[in-house]
């Protein structure tokens, strides 16, 4: 953690999914992870909400920001690389929901 966290809903190791919803305006969640499953690998701390900051807001309350790891083969059909290749994105808590664990 590199900043003090606000109360964080997820823990490292948790399976998460990025909701596949449209939100107009300034959003820091890349389109290509929407609807995709990943795993929390770390909590970076609480950060001002960029979706508020972008419009002159104070960014409060701060949002917990997570490191989320995705398998490249889950993101791209026909990914040209070994199955161990991963992609890591920093995602704010309101862009994550719990995912059902894969057996």
């Amino acid at each position: 953690m590199i900043r003090p966290a606000t109360a964080a809903r997820f823990r490292p190791g948790d399976a998460v999914r990025v909701p596949n919803v449209e939100k107009k305006g300034h959003v820091r969640t890349p389109e290509y992870v929407k609807g995709k499953r990943g795993r929390v690998t770390g909590i970076l701390g609480g950060f001002p909400d960029p979706e508020s900051l972008a419009y002159g807001g104070a960014g409060l309350p701060e949002k917990p920001l997570y490191r989320v790891c995705f398998r490249q083969t889950d993101l791209w059909e026909g990914y040209a690389g070994p199955p161990g290749d991963t992609l890591h994105v920093d995602i704010y808590e309101h862009w994550l929901e719990p995912a059902i664990e894969e057996s």
């Binding site: 960029p50 690389g81 290749d85 991963t86």
Partner: peptide, 10 residues
């Protein structure tokens, strides 16, 4: 393994 980091947040 290749780990890509998309640093699009903070």
């Amino acid at each position: 393994s290749v780990s890509v980091h998309d640093s699009s947040a903070d």
